[in-house]
Design a protein around this nucleic acid. Structure first.
Length: 413
DNA sequence: TCTGGGGTCCTAGGACCC
DNA sequence: TCTGGGGTCCTAGGACCC
């Protein structure tokens, strides 16, 4: 049986955990740049704040209901996530994180699954302070569905028999099903299909023809036939990227390069963290797609590295060159990104037949990592990242690093 | 004025090969 | 009058996830 455990209102729950005075008050967490709402406590949902609402458009609601606003604090969420995952793996075997706030797992050979799920949930909540929900079923798709239903069922739900599964599908709205997004929802609505029970009764061929093989897999999973494996540990990423919006518009190549340098060096750090090198480096620029009155420009270029690399100096110099080439004067840029693909493990590096390989660049990177590990990120960095950082993200409502920074430790007394 | 960031998988179509 | 069949690789775009 597949298990899906997820954290309820994760970011909002994590913020509230370290500010107990906020218990019962509505909370929202904003995306990077304080752009839009990406997490809400139950109270904020009740107040009418929707997922993805731009912050400036819900300003009045925030005032009216005294909603507490936070910028996203990924250091805090990442650390809390690890704690939840760790606790979860004490109860279920092969726990595979699916996102920052949920994980799949396997439950085999357990006598009374329903009681077991309740005990596991209680323990995880007690140890982490984060409320979680647990769904268990014969396939991943059904486990996701059970998880969603569990929230109105005291936080756990086990679907074991065919009768239980059929009953669960009966009133389950298709738009809440894993794998049904906006487009498929619209298409199905036009066919007057509204519940998963109705969906499951369509012929298999329909899924293949209208929703590719992914839809076909979903259909089988709904009938209790597992098509999706738990996955490997750790799942090896296909690509890594760092992309950010600017706080304002960028129109000068030098400023743009400061930002791209910063993203590129973060990317190099991420690669080294994963012990991977990239063979390709893509750089892209973006204008504000919400403004129809501005000329739009979204150039991109993929550069093939002669030798795969994860060194800060190399990645930064390539990214900078490409960014300068893509830049076009008179355009108001809003966002830029650097993407590493063609990842290979550090150990499998293929050197150049005719070029001598020196590891100077790698030594520089090693020194950067060592100093930044000891004294904090950004202690040693590339000068081309600039000093003023006018383009830098907004983070007006950032909470503390309660679990990762000594000076932010909560004082009990 | 102000609208996130990081991913995955799949398909169609074009360019090319013999 | 009538112009094949079997591939590969790459890119763009569309759908989805949290």
């Amino acid at each position: 049986m597949y298990v899906l455990c997820d954290c309820n209102n994760f970011y909002a729950s994590a913020e509230r955990l370290f500010k107990p005075a906020l218990r019962g008050l509505p909370i929202v967490v904003l995306s990077n740049n304080d752009g839009c709402v990406i997490a809400r406590s139950q109270e904020a949902k009740d107040a009418g704040i929707k997922m993805g609402d731009p912050a400036f458009m819900v300003h009045d609601l925030i005032k009216k209901f005294n909603i507490q606003v936070f910028s996203s604090n990924y250091v805090l969420y990442g650390d809390m996530s690890e704690r939840v995952m760790h606790n979860l793996s004490r109860w279920f075997v092969t726990v595979i994180p699916y996102s920052i706030d949920e994980a799949f797992g396997w439950a085999g050979g357990i006598m009374n699954l329903k009681d077991y799920a309740i005990t596991a949930r209680t323990s995880i909540i007690k140890n982490t302070g984060i409320p979680v929900s647990i769904g268990i079923a014969p396939t991943k798709t059904l486990a996701k569905l059970a998880n969603k239903l569990s929230k109105a069922n005291g936080g756990t739900l086990v679907l074991e028999t065919d009768a239980e599964i059929t009953a669960a599908l009966k009133d389950f709205p298709i738009e809440d099903l894993w794998g049904i997004g906006r487009q498929y929802y619209q298409k199905l609505s036009q066919m007057k299909i509204t519940t998963v029970a109705e969906l499951r009764d369509l012929p298999e061929l329909w899924f293949k023809q209208n929703m590719t093989v992914q839809g076909q897999r979903m259909w089988n999973e709904l009938w209790g036939r597992p098509m999706l494996q738990l996955g490997e540990l750790p799942p090896t990423a296909k690509g890594l990227s760092v992309t950010r919006s600017f706080s304002g518009y960028v129109m000068e190549p030098d400023i743009l390069c400061e930002a791209v340098t910063t993203y590129a060096s973060r990317l190099a750090e991420k690669l080294r963290n994963e012990k991977m090198c990239c063979q390709f480096l893509e750089v892209f620029l973006l204008t504000n797609k919400h403004r129809e009155d501005h000329p739009q420009h979204y150039p991109k270029h993929v550069h093939k590295l002669t030798i795969a690399s994860n060194s800060t100096t190399e990645i930064v110099s390539v990214a900078n060159r490409v960014a300068r080439m893509l830049f076009s004067p008179g355009i108001k840029y809003r966002k830029a990104g650097v993407i590493a693909t063609g990842l290979i493990p550090e150990g499998d590096l293929q050197f150049h037949l005719f070029k001598e390989h020196t590891n100077n660049a790698d030594q520089v990177s090693a020194v950067i990592d060592k100093l930044n590990m000891a004294y904090g990120r950004g202690t040693l960095r590339m000068a081309s990242e600039g000093f003023e950082k006018k383009w830098k993200l907004k983070h007006e409502y950032l909470s503390g690093g309660y679990t990762t920074r000594w000076k932010d430790l909560i004082k009990v007394r």
